[in-house]
Amino acid sequence: MTQILIVAEHDGTKLNPSTARCVTAARQVPDAKVTVAVLAAAPEAIAAEAASLAGVDAVLTVAHPANAQPLAAVLAPQIVALAADYSHVFGPSTSFGKDVMPRVAALLGVSQISDLMAVDGSHQFKRPIYAGNAIVTVVATAGQKVVATVRTASFDAAGPGGSAPVTAASPNVALPTHTRFVSKAEAKSDRPDLQTAAKVVSGGRALASAENFKLVFGLAEKMGAAVGASRAAVDAGYAPNELQVGQTGKIIAPQLYLAIGISGAIQHLTGIKDAKTIVAINKDAEAPIFEVADIGLVGDLFQVVPELEKLLG
């Protein structure tokens, strides 16, 4: 049987939805037993959440004050110790998973399969390269551990309905002190989360100022949507970095993606390819975004967006 260990992502109190998506990916591996590992200062509540996910067979907790913040150098040796009994180690392809999982892979002496997007078999997977312009089939050597990050946009979140047993583990490894957490600046907002929202309204360079970018926030609010941005908009300071969508930002798969004043560079498109419906508003009829848009409107955003907001009531 295939034993898969999933490294849970959490914020110290709650499980991140990326973990439930990893569970779905892991369940697609034939004959897999799926265990979720929660490394935290106080993992109990998070572990209970993980245990209640359908498709989870077991939950392991590692409680340690050093796990209060997700420091890759601190977590990796613990995960490696836990991994001894597993054939596969999965984590989400989020900033958390991307940071810690390659460190785990290196300590295990293997390459990681990054952004796993489809499971063909226990050792065969698909992943995107070149900003999603090519999809490759990767075959891992049988008998070697498989370490992978799961492209969360490719898998639905596992639902509730599980009741897995929770077991405490205490891997006996030395933890480094060379890496210390200083601070975190998180934008607290009531807006839906970009990575999980059903609708996303996104703005580009055309917004031309942080002040104007409020148009995007306003429309998003009216539509109950999360806000995204192109790299150009983030670089120019119109929107904060965590809103960047694309190859090197967030990869998302909402029901609706509304791109406003975004040209549609390949690096941006790779982040939205899995959106169900893409709507583009751009004043240039030749903009590449229209090649992928399901619905396109050629127009000046400074007229179109206020009008749309008004008609939405």
């Binding site: 312009n133 999809i135 089939t137 990767v138 075959v139 229209f290 399901d294 396109g296």
Partner: peptide, 17 residues
Amino acid sequence: QLKITHYEPPKARAKGI
């Protein structure tokens, strides 16, 4: 340890309106 056995283009999106 990892072999790439196949390359394919991404699925094209249906043409929009």
